[in-house]
Amino acid sequence: MIGEAESELRRCVELAEEALWAGDEPFGSVLVASDGRRLAEDRNRVVTGGDATLHPEFALARWAATNLSPAERSAATVFTSGEHCPMCAAAHGWVGLGRIVYASSAAQLADWLAEFGAAESPVRVLPITQVVPDLVVEGPIDELADEVRELHRRFVAGGG
């Protein structure tokens, strides 16, 4: 695993598991400043919050827009358990956040959900760079993808 990202991605998986235990889809994200300080973190709240836009990546983009200068945003990194959906990728791009590092890809998630018999997403699966073409993106990270897969399997099966 890429050394610098390991603890941040592990925290994302922990947040995803917290979301699962709370009854939400297992996604977690962390926003890190260019100097390595963890600025904010969040987990998915779509099911329990009743709002399909309560994705952690979207929440971090909104937090960054309110709390960071444009230069700070562009130098920051978002670490996340799963690749951004098109909505979150667009928010990331509009706010001007920097690099994204994800543990599992949207394509992996789509394959897993189909395998588990889950309902198909109402939003097309797209790589982040199809939404924000010039963004620096790293992932998936094989060492964590299996853990993320298991969280999604548990969610589809009906529990934490």
Score class of each variant (00 low, 15 high):
Trp21His: 09
Phe58Asn: 09
His55Gln: 14
Ala59Pro: 01
Arg149Ile: 09
His55Ile: 03
Ala59Thr: 06
Val137Ile: 11
Tyr102Leu: 08
Gly82Arg: 13
Thr48Asn: 06
Gly50His: 03
Ile141Leu: 13
Thr77Lys: 03
Ala90Asp: 00
Glu4Met: 01
Arg43Gln: 09
Ser34Met: 03
Leu97Ala: 00
Ser105Asp: 00
Ile100Gly: 02
Arg124Ala: 15
Ala157Glu: 10
Asp134Gln: 12
Glu150Ala: 15
Arg153Cys: 02
Val46Asp: 03
Val95Tyr: 03
His92Pro: 05
Asn44Gln: 06
Trp94Ile: 07
Ala145Asn: 05
Val125Gly: 06
Arg37Leu: 07
Val125His: 12
His55Leu: 15
Arg38Gln: 07
Val148Met: 07
Pro122Gln: 03
Thr129Asn: 15
Pro56Thr: 04
Leu144Ala: 05
Ala118Leu: 02
Leu60Pro: 11
Asp35Gln: 03
Arg99Phe: 05
Asp42Thr: 02
Gly50Thr: 07
Val46Asn: 09
Ala89Lys: 04
Asp51Leu: 05
Val13Leu: 10
Phe79Ser: 12
Val101Met: 05
Pro140Val: 03
Glu14Gly: 04
Ala64Ile: 01
Glu57Cys: 06
Pro122Cys: 05
Arg38Ile: 04
Thr129Lys: 10
Arg10Ile: 11
His55Phe: 15
Ser121Asp: 15
Ala145Cys: 04
Trp94Gly: 00
Ser29Arg: 02
Gln108Met: 04
Leu97Lys: 00
Glu57Leu: 08
Gly82Asn: 04
Pro70Asn: 07
Gly158Pro: 06
Ala33Trp: 13
Gly117Thr: 14
Arg124Gly: 08
Ala61Met: 10
Leu60Phe: 01
Arg73Gly: 02
Glu83Lys: 07
Arg10Ala: 14
Gly49Cys: 13
Val32Arg: 01
Ser29Val: 05
Glu25Asn: 07
Glu25Trp: 12
Glu14Ser: 11
Val131Phe: 06
Ala59Leu: 04
Leu135Phe: 04
Trp112Asn: 03
Ile128Pro: 02
Phe27Asp: 12
Leu144Gln: 09
Val47Ile: 08
Ser74Thr: 11
Ala118Asn: 13
Ser34Ala: 15
Leu97Gln: 00
Pro127Asp: 14
Asp111Gly: 07
Gly139Tyr: 06
Pro127Gly: 02
Leu20Trp: 09
Ala64Asp: 02
Glu138Leu: 11
Leu54Met: 11
Gly23Gln: 12
Ser34Leu: 05
Cys85Gln: 10
Val148Cys: 04
His152Glu: 04
His92Met: 13
Leu39Gly: 14
Glu147Ser: 09
